[in-house]
Amino acid sequence: MTSLPEKTGKKLGLVIDLDTCVGCHACVVNCKEWNTSNYGAPLSDMDAYGSNPVGTFLNRVHSYEVTPDTGLAQTVHFPKSCLHCEDAPCVTVCPTGASYKRVEDGIVLVNEDDCMGCGLCAWACPYGARELDQLAGVMKKCTLCVDRIYNDNIPEEDRVPACVRTCPAGARHFGDFADPDSPVSRLTAERGGMELMPEQGTKPVNRYLPPRQKDASLSEIKALGGDIEEPKGLLAWLDKALEAI
């Protein structure tokens, strides 16, 4: 069913903290290893040991340099995967009904048994969240680890997406945005969680926490301004200070 649900029970998604992400690619690779042997066809790697290795990844970390008008340039590591949009254009364009958004939790999925590999959904996505697997010929995308988050075979605390479970810096948070009191909703509210390319009107569920203000020392003058300089001053200070111990 490629019509979008009017409303979903939950709005599951991720908060990605750009102030914390160090760009280590842990999420990229753990996602790859979980998803290559679970939901759907494996994530293949073409020319794996050759001159142009290209594989399917559901999550990739970009690195940007941001240069303010004044002050120092900054480096921002930027993980990107499916944002599970409320108004997901990738779903409605699908001709076969393979792409769908789940009514119960809002996860956008591809039923690979129905996918004909036309690639139109990938064209419709502004974020580059979908990749057509070159070996299997079906569209792959982040499933929000739908096969982990409800999985009775793994401990309850592990029922989060693999990228969240593995992120060493804790820069990724998983939860229900429909619940205003959920940690992801609160983080979004407190830290000004942003939508990517809001002008596309996709209403992405995933939010990005912007980097905090950097390099305060450039604009803030602060110095200890002590005056212990000569040996005499030093001795006097020491004497007084030691007495106080």
Binding site: D19, T20, Q74, P211
Partner: peptide, 29 residues
């Protein structure tokens, strides 16, 4: 550890000629 500091809003000063990785998230570079 950096994640813990960031969650608390504690400050990080990175001293490195290159602003990548840990220095990218440092409050002061």
């Amino acid at each position: 550890g950096l994640g813990k500091l960031k969650a608390r809003g504690a400050k990080v000063i990175g001293v490195n000629p290159i602003r990548s990785g840990y220095n990218a998230v440092a409050d002061e570079w």
